[in-house]
């Protein structure tokens, strides 16, 4: 989709993880090499597109503090230089590139779950909604109680499985209530959680990342 807009995409295959899982679980020391690795890998990029709001939140909320604690001025300088070039996917399109209509066609009903980190840490606001509204044929349905967490929370989902599932049950009930065929978000982690509950309960609602919807240019939306 980004190439369709005329940009060049590179994917450094050496990349692995931004360190969020370790950091947020309390394994701060273990996260540092992953952060260094990320910074090393992307330091020369013109713009870094991250299709996961929570990874971007990790970078913006914690990388500077972590680099400061490392007492490594060069590392800290790299972090400071790189961060303004890191964009969550919808931010890249709407804020950096100034595009709302990416030329997509997707004739389906869709509801949008604003993931917590995109909403409350990145403050992406209505950027994803603007993108969805510009998709041909797409019927955007409002998700009730949309700002409530889906219950994923990284390792929370396995450390506190019962509470996580109770939260998920509320979220999935809201999703089903919209009657949408598809639920979308900026975070595959939330979508994994939402899917896990929907599929277990036998629901036919599908989960798709926003990028998958915006990529579609076929008249049918490319769904099987």
């Amino acid at each position: 989709m980004i190439e369709r807009l005329g940009h060049t995409v590179e994917f450094p295959v050496q990349q692995t993880c931004c360190g969020q899982m370790h950091y947020n679980t309390g394994y701060h020391r273990e996260a540092v090499p992953l952060v260094r690795r990320f910074v090393e890998m992307f330091r020369d990029a013109e713009a870094v597109c991250v299709p996961s709001a929570s990874c971007v939140a990790m970078m913006r909320e914690h990388y500077v503090m972590m680099a400061e604690a490392e007492n490594d001025p060069a590392f800290l300088a790299d972090v400071h230089s790189l961060l303004p070039r890191v964009f969550e996917f919808s931010e890249l399109l709407v804020n950096r590139l100034g595009i709302e209509d990416v030329g997509a066609t997707f004739p389906h009903s869709v509801t949008y779950h604003p993931s917590c980190h995109s909403l409350r840490m990145l403050h992406v606001g209505d950027a994803p909604v603007k993108l969805l509204r510009s998709v041909r044929g797409l019927n955007l349905l409002e998700l009730p109680n949309k700002e409530q967490c889906c219950g994923f929370g990284g390792t929370f989902a396995v450390k506190n499985p019962d509470v996580s599932v109770a939260m998920l049950t509320e979220k999935d009930a809201c999703v089903v209530q919209t009657g949408a065929e598809i639920v979308t978000a900026l975070d595959n982690s939330c979508l994994m959680q939402i899917y896990g509950g929907l599929h277990r309960s036998g629901s036919k609602v599908r989960t798709m990342h926003l990028a998958e919807i915006l990529e579609s240019i076929e008249p049918t939306g490319g769904l099987a």
Partner: peptide, 29 residues
Amino acid sequence: PFASTLCGACYEVCPVKINIPEVLIHLRG
């Protein structure tokens, strides 16, 4: 400290801006 998804709803409403998710992560550490 692990009884939270770090969704940030607490920080958003806190009238004295306690960054509770930040403190939770610190305590997890």
